[in-house]
Amino acid sequence: MKQPIGIIDSGVGGLTVAKEIIRQLPNEQIIYLGDNARCPYGPRTKEEVRAFTWQLTEFLLAKKIKMLIIACNTATAAALEDIKKNVPIPVLGVIQPGARAAIKNSSNLNIGVIGTVGTVKSGAYPDALKSINDQVSVKSIACPKFVPIVESGEYSGALVKKVVAESLAPFKGSGIDTLILGCTHYPLLGPLISSTMGKGVKVISSGDETARETSAILEYKGLLNDQNEKPEHYFYTTGSRDMFHRIASSWLQKDLQHVYSIKLN
């Protein structure tokens, strides 16, 4: 089926998921919407996040998407179940795939989670991890400074290194062997996070696992695009088109042709 896959996020973070889907499912068209104008979602109330997520969803439903991926952990925690119940297409969040990948990679079942204030407060990751294996031990830390750094497009340098080191300091001596990047913005800081945590800690991004689950769901539902042609991807932002274009082109390693700034009512 040639209809596109829709991906929503609070900003540019969901591009980490989009990149994996484009890599693993090269025949599929992506329509991406980032709510950069109202990012970050982490400090907002659950009600606000749910309302924003529905706005993004409705925009993409009007584009006739065949599947929706909520590529934002805060939005997944606040709105996934509600949206799944009320739309006629498959909907996938990023928390369950990330939890599965962490359990698979952990040797001692001592797992760390970093995320926005909203995601950490929701307890969504400990719940997801314990639903897979109730023996798991979870330590969660909110890192509210990370999303603004990524959204600014300046995610390297001495100051950023200092912020990352200070934010992750509570994990020292915790014994975790796996760290979940519980926000899709965080993989853009991945090299810094990995070097700060050291070689003994496996860093998990949900993008790879989410793309695999997307493929499995589309195959099961008979929705895969079996026509071997190169699709054109479309990207929308509620913020600055130029800023989004710069970050997205850099992360996806291609000059994107279809990038548009929109306003949501």
Rank of each mutant, 00 (worst) to 15 (best):
N110E: 13
K85T: 15
G98C: 08
N86C: 11
G112P: 05
I111T: 06
Q96K: 12
A101N: 01
K85F: 09
P97D: 07
N108S: 14
K104E: 15
I103Q: 04
R100E: 13
S106L: 14
P88R: 11
S106W: 07
I95T: 03
S106K: 01
A102L: 10
G98W: 03
N110C: 14
V91S: 03
I95D: 01
I89N: 07
K84R: 15
L92Y: 02
G112I: 11
N105R: 10
N108P: 09
N86I: 13
A101S: 11
L109E: 03
V113P: 02
P90V: 11
I114Y: 04
A102F: 01
G93P: 09
K84T: 09
A102S: 04
I114V: 14
V113L: 10
L92C: 01
V91L: 13
L109F: 15
I103D: 03
N105W: 05
K85D: 14
V91Q: 06
G93L: 13
I95N: 00
V94D: 04
L109A: 05
P90T: 10
P88G: 15
L92E: 02
V91A: 04
I103K: 01
A102C: 08
R100D: 08
N105C: 13
R100K: 15
A102M: 06
G93Q: 07
S107F: 11
N86S: 14
I95L: 00
P97K: 01
I114R: 00
A102Y: 02
V113C: 05
G98E: 06
K84N: 02
I111G: 04
P88K: 15
I103F: 02
Q96M: 13
I89C: 09
I95C: 02
V113S: 00
V94Q: 00
I89W: 07
I95G: 00
N105G: 09
I103G: 01
S106G: 07
I95Q: 02
G112N: 08
I95M: 05
G112C: 13
